[in-house]
Structure formats: structure tokens, C-alpha cells
Write a protein that binds this DNA or RNA. Structure first.
Length: 430
RNA sequence: GUGGGCGUAGCUCAGAAGGUUAGAGCGCCAGGUUGUGGCCCUGGAGGCCGGGGGUUCGAAUCCCCUCGCUCACCCCA
């Protein structure tokens, strides 16, 4: 047991039973992408390490201790597994000269990301995200479009009760002013802060905002909102976002303490939360990052995007559907071939091929066991039709076809087998 | 990296003042129906009781170490 090879910590297998759930999320996402005019892009799972260092920020936990970084073979520099998708997409945007060809790009992606962290509920080392990036505009319409799109993805998987939290971080200048004010305010009261928060003051003051310690929360009640520090343009932009959300009847909660994890966010930030999740209740989040393209070597370019955590979202979906275990009743549009004895195997195999060629899902066992066992297996797979092939019938050029739902069984000529099976599969579910 | 909880059959879990063949339900296999599933009945297979060490006449049970899972913190999707 202890020597058995298992999936590495923080990774997991999506087993066949769960794959439909993942497909549903992917289908809902692609459907929404199409409806909103976003094109899917696929960037590498590995990038040069310096892309993330420059994009995400050298002093962030992600870069400092959570990246899977290793030297590439040959003479290439250090490469890293992507901890998020935005940096790679921005890199592609610049590399392929989109800013010259067609500056406005609405891009979508989905796939695995990697961060070396202690796993917990809804958090894995290999995790998956679905997201979009709008590159090439500063307009608040873009911010709101991404929010509406994300909500449509959630709706597509049946998650209607996600809460939208909204805030603005301002531009670099507004943020610097605000940061200074917060630091000053907190420094005067540092004695009342927990140890973590005193450390946060050095590293990233805004993180004090989501401290869970009671004392810290109390102190935070006295801090001023960023609204007082926003420049005219940033205030106008945020007003625009709010107005447009109202226009679309999208409900949101202004959260002055909402600070997104990544450093590159500017102006609008937002997060989607779901109550079913526990401590880590975010199912997704996003915001504007107007400096990132320039930071990575491109021209000044407005940009906004979100990412949805697939695991968290699926957890929330699964939580909703507990209780309604409608297992066992539904039959599949599948024909199970049942062989009475070894002598009919060749013919059965040929009939199997014929059914499959004609577009019918059909299967038969490789090794013939008792008929009872074959019937049991057919039932377990919820096959709607059973085709029973025995030497007696075969002598008359016939086989038996049974409706596993109703139980009735008829004998048909071999030439009519496709029609007979089709007819049963087409019958309404019971 | 830190802290809590938990590791017994394929799955969910009983069993722990140490005592001899370690249990249940579900699942699986088979029989009841020598060519027919689902329900029911009967039987069966399946456990280094996570791993290592220690205490003891004797350890699933007590002690130490270790690995793993899990939840939470940090951080974050």
C-alpha cells in the first residue's frame, strides 16, 4: 500500500463517471464564448520563467514558492509550468503582433494550471481554469461584458446563485495614494494587528483586507474607501462599470475590501463566490490589467479578463445536485449482444460490426460467460436492447431482440436486425 | 511552511478497559431458473486493520516514528 504508485499529491484522475460533468462545463463555456464573440486560444503549458516573474510579480507567493520551475534541457533558460493563463496569452498577443494587426482581441481559454501548494477543498496543484481576456480596449463595456459572460458560463452549468463582488483598485497612481494612506492608518494601530497582518504590512498591505482575525477586522472598519483616492478617470471608469451592470440587471455587491491575488490588476476587480464551498468560496474572479501588456514588452494596451476555477465550480455544482440521485432508471441507447454459446461467436461479431456501421451503439463480451452473466452485464450497462444469438435461431436465419425496459422479446430475421434494434432504441423512456 | 481530524474488504463504515477464526451494508462472483437481466433467497471470493519500530505471553486496539488522505491557516482559482 505504502509503496504503491499514486497520482502525485494535489493531482487527481477524472474518472469516467465524472467526465460528463467536465464536458458539461467545457461545453457551456464554449457555447458562451461563441455567443459573446470570443475565440479560443491555446498557449503552452510551459513558458519561460521570466514571463511569469515579470507578469505576475517577483515578490508574489506564486512566483516565489508556488511555481514548478526547472531548467530546460539544452541551452534554454529556466522554464515554468504556467500558474495562470493571462501572462501566456498576453505574450502570444505581443508575439504575434496582434496589437498591430487587430488590436482588439477577445480570447478564451481553458486548461490546466499548476501551483505548488498544500491541497485543500477546491484547491489542487494541478487545477483547471476557464477564462477570457479582452485585449485592446479601456472601455467599461468590456469589463461588464466579461462579467456577463462569466455569469452565463455559471448559468450554463446550472449555477444560478453565484454572488458577484465588485471593487476598483484604481490606476497605479490612485493605488499608490491609497496604499500610503492605508499603511499609515494601520501603522498607527499595528499593535492591534495579528502577526500575519504585521507581516502583510511589509509585503502587501492590501492583504490585511481579507484577514479573518476578529481584531484585525475591527480595525479595518475604520479605514477609508478607495473612492476618496480615485483620480477622475478611474472614478469615471468605475461609474461606467456600475452603470452598465445596472443596465444589464446584474446584481453585485460593492466590496471595498476585495483585493485580487495577482499584482497586475488595475481599476475593476471582481470575484464570484458560492456559498456551498467553505473557506475558499471563490469560483472565479477577474479584473482589468491595463499595464500588463506594456510590462511584457508591448504597447500600452487596455485589457480585462476573468478566470473561473473548474474544480471549485464543479464542486458547487455537485453540491446543488445532492439528494436527487435518479440512478438506475434510465436506459442507454445501447444494444448488448448476448451469445448462447461459443458456436455463435463469429456470427455475433459480424452482426456487432454491422450494427456499429449502421450507427447503433452496440457491444458484446470478449469472453463468453453464462447467459445469465451476460444479461446481468447488459442490465448493468443499462442497455435498452439485448440481441440474443443462439444456434437454434441461427439455423432458421434469425436472432432474438429484447427490450430490456419492457421485457418483451421478438424473433427477427438476421437481415432485419438493424431495424428491429433501432425500433426498440427509439421507444420512449419508461 | 504551520495546525487539527482521519487511515480496518472494491466503496461507506462498525470493532479499541489488549485475548485466540476481524465484522456489517452496498458492490462483485456463482447458484436458485442445464438459453434470459432488474426484485427476492442462498452461498462464495475478497483484509500485511497505511508502513516501520517498541511494550506485552498476546496488539487493529497501548507508545514512538513515518507515509498518506483530509480540513483549516499562509496564499489563492
Amino acid at each position: 500500500m505504502s509503496r504503491q504508485i499514486k497520482a502525485p499529491r494535489g493531482t487527481f484522475d477524472v474518472l469516467p463517471d465524472d467526465v460528463p460533468l467536465w464536458l458539461k462545463l467545457e461545453a457551456a463555456s464554449r457555447e458562451a464564448f461563441g455567443r459573446y464573440g470570443y475565440s479560443e486560444i491555446r498557449t503552452p503549458l510551459v513558458e519561460e520563467t521570466r514571463l511569469f516573474v515579470r507578469g505576475i510579480g517577483e515578490a508574489t507567493d506564486i512566483v516565489e514558492k508556488e511555481m514548478y520551475t526547472f531548467p530546460s534541457k539544452g541551452r534554454d533558460d529556466s522554464i515554468s509550468l504556467r500558474p495562470e493563463a493571462t501572462a501566456g496569452i498576453v505574450r502570444a498577443y505581443i508575439q504575434h503582433n496582434f496589437h498591430k494587426k487587430a488590436p482588439l482581441q477577445k480570447l478564451a481559454y481553458m486548461g490546466p494550471m499548476f501551483r505548488y501548494e498544500r491541497p485543500q477543498a477546491g484547491r489542487q496543484r494541478q487545477f483547471h481554469q476557464v477564462g477570457v481576456e479582452v485585449l485592446g480596449t479601456h472601455m467599461p463595456e468590456a469589463d461588464v461584458e466579461t462579467i456577463a459572460l462569466a455569469l452565463d458560463v455559471f448559468k450554463g452549468v446550472g449555477l444560478l446563485d453565484v454572488d458577484l463582488k465588485l471593487n476598483t483598485m484604481g490606476c497605479t497612481k490612485c493605488r499608490d495614494h491609497y496604499r500610503a494612506a492605508i499603511s499609515e492608518y494601520l501603522a498607527e494601530r499595528a499593535g492591534g494587528l495579528c502577526g500575519d497582518c504585521r507581516r502583510r504590512m511589509e509585503r502587501n498591505v492590501f492583504r490585511v483586507f481579507d484577514c479573518k482575525v476578529e481584531a484585525c477586522r475591527g480595525l479595518l472598519e475604520g479605514v477609508s474607501s478607495i473612492d476618496e483616492y480615485l483620480c477622475g478617470d478611474c472614478a469615471t471608469h468605475f461609474d461606467g462599470v456600475v452603470r452598465l451592470l445596472d443596465e444589464l440587471d446584474i446584481e453585485y455587491r460593492r466590496d471595498n475590501f476585495l483585493v485580487r491575488g495577482l499584482d497586475y490588476y488595475t481599476r475593476t476587480v471582481y470575484e464570484f463566490a458560492h456559498s456551498a464551498l467553505g473557506a475558499r468560496d471563490a469560483v472565479g474572479g477577474g479584473g482589468r490589467y491595463d499595464n500588463l501588456v506594456e510590462e511584457l514588452g508591448g504597447p500600452p494596451t487596455g485589457a480585462v479578463g476573468f478566470s473561473i476555477g473548474s474544480e471549485a465550480t464543479l464542486l458547487a455544482v455537485a453540491d446543488r445536485s445532492t439528494g436527487g440521485s435518479s440512478e438506475g432508471e434510465g436506459f442507454q441507447a445501447l444494444a448488448a449482444l448476448v451469445m448462447v454459446d461459443e458456436s455463435v461467436k463469429r456470427v455475433a461479431f459480424r452482426l456487432l460490426g454491422e450494427l456499429r456501421c449502421r450507427g447503433i451503439s452496440a457491444d458484446m463480451p470478449f469472453e463468453i460467460k453464462s447467459m445469465k452473466a451476460q444479461m446481468r452485464a447488459a442490465n448493468r450497462r443499462r442497455a435498452r436492447a439485448a440481441v440474443i444469438i443462439g444456434p437454434g435461431e441461427l439455423d432458421r436465419g434469425r436472432v432474438k431482440v429484447k427490450d430490456m425496459a419492457g421485457g418483451e422479446e421478438i424473433e427477427v430475421e438476421i437481415g432485419r436486425i438493424v431495424d428491429a434494434v433501432s425500433e426498440i432504441l427509439a421507444r420512449p423512456a419508461l
